[in-house]
Design a protein around this nucleic acid. Structure first.
Length: 273
DNA sequence: CACTCTACCTGTGCGC
DNA sequence: TGCGCACAGGTAGAGT
């Protein structure tokens, strides 16, 4: 479930002072579900990771990227990349709390802590790659930091329905179903609108909405929907609010399907022209 | 290229 | 109460 703001929230938690991960060595790796390891055999993943040090952490779209270094031997390094998909969670725990029902991977550190990856639905994935591009090469620019100029030039090259386009990670990385609905509501654009029919003013509002919604959500530590999606304070305007009244105009929010995805829209604030 | 469908997986919540 | 089933979510890959 995590989208960009929730992943950013995980990143910030792991970077909180005092920073716990940088400099820590992985003493041992416990893989409880082979399917979460992508791109190499589990034995290689485990063998290569043991003895490596955490260096720095970054994010691109919904991916978390840990730079790892092997002490001693030259400056050989690699990148540990996580995608949490819908139900994945990544967090530090005391090492004696290292395994629960949905735990898929545990990295035991050289102190009293462990980095644990839990995922009830086993959709999340982990890669160990020599280069981040081995995993991330198909992604578009990060949705939180894309410039208006880049956004404008990318969108004007395409003719797509706007909501599936926002969800396309090769167009822009980081937007999922929840924030796509919130962004289009903020911009006053109907999700079925063709990107070709957007005026320059529409595109400017859309670009602002992406920036405003995502940065609001990051500052709120993500959303909290039915206590299931995230634990943050971001307040949704349309997502999951079908049958309730629009906070802006009072008319009833409806739910439609766009590209096989549940889509929430205020027909008054987001007219389909 | 744009789009649709399916598979992956499991917890939840509905109707019967 | 219990059962079965649709559904939610992100992405890859195949097909139209």
């Amino acid at each position: 479930m995590p989208e960009l703001p929730e992943v950013e929230s995980v990143l910030r938690t792991l970077q909180e002072c005092p920073p716990v991960l940088p400099g820590r060595m992985i003493n041992s790796v416990i893989v409880l579900s082979d399917t979460v390891i992508s791109g190499c055999p589990v034995a290689n993943f485990t063998g290569e990771l043991e003895g490596m040090l955490f260096s720095s952490i970054a994010r691109h779209g919904k991916y978390l990227i840990f730079r790892m270094i092997r002490p001693g031997v030259g400056c050989s390094g690699s990148f540990l990349v996580f995608h949490l998909r819908m139900t994945g969670r990544l967090f530090l725990v005391p090492r004696e709390h290292s395994i629960e029902r949905h735990t898929r991977l545990v990295l035991i550190l050289d102190n009293d802590l462990a980095l644990r990856f839990d995922d009830p639905r086993k959709f999340g994935r982990v890669w160990l790659a020599a280069n981040p591009a081995d995993v991330l090469s198909k992604l578009g620019p990060d949705a939180l930091t894309v410039t208006p100029e880049i956004f404008r030039s990318r969108i004007s090259a395409l003719q797509r329905k706007i909501k599936p386009l926002l969800l396309d990670q090769s167009f822009l990385a980081g937007i999922g179903n929840i924030y796509a609905d919130e962004i289009l509501f903020r911009a006053g654009i109907h999700p079925l609108t063709s990107s070709r029919d957007l005026t320059p003013f529409d595109i400017e509002r859309l670009c602002n909405a992406i920036r405003d919604i995502l940065s609001d959500a990051v500052e709120s530590n993500g959303a909290n929907i039915d206590g299931v999606f995230g634990k943050g304070r971001f307040v949704v305007s349309v997502y999951g609010r079908e049958g309730l009244s629009c906070s802006r105009c009072g008319s009833t929010i409806i739910k439609i399907r766009v590209g096989q995805r549940g889509t929430h829209v205020c027909q008054v604030c987001q007219p389909f022209l």
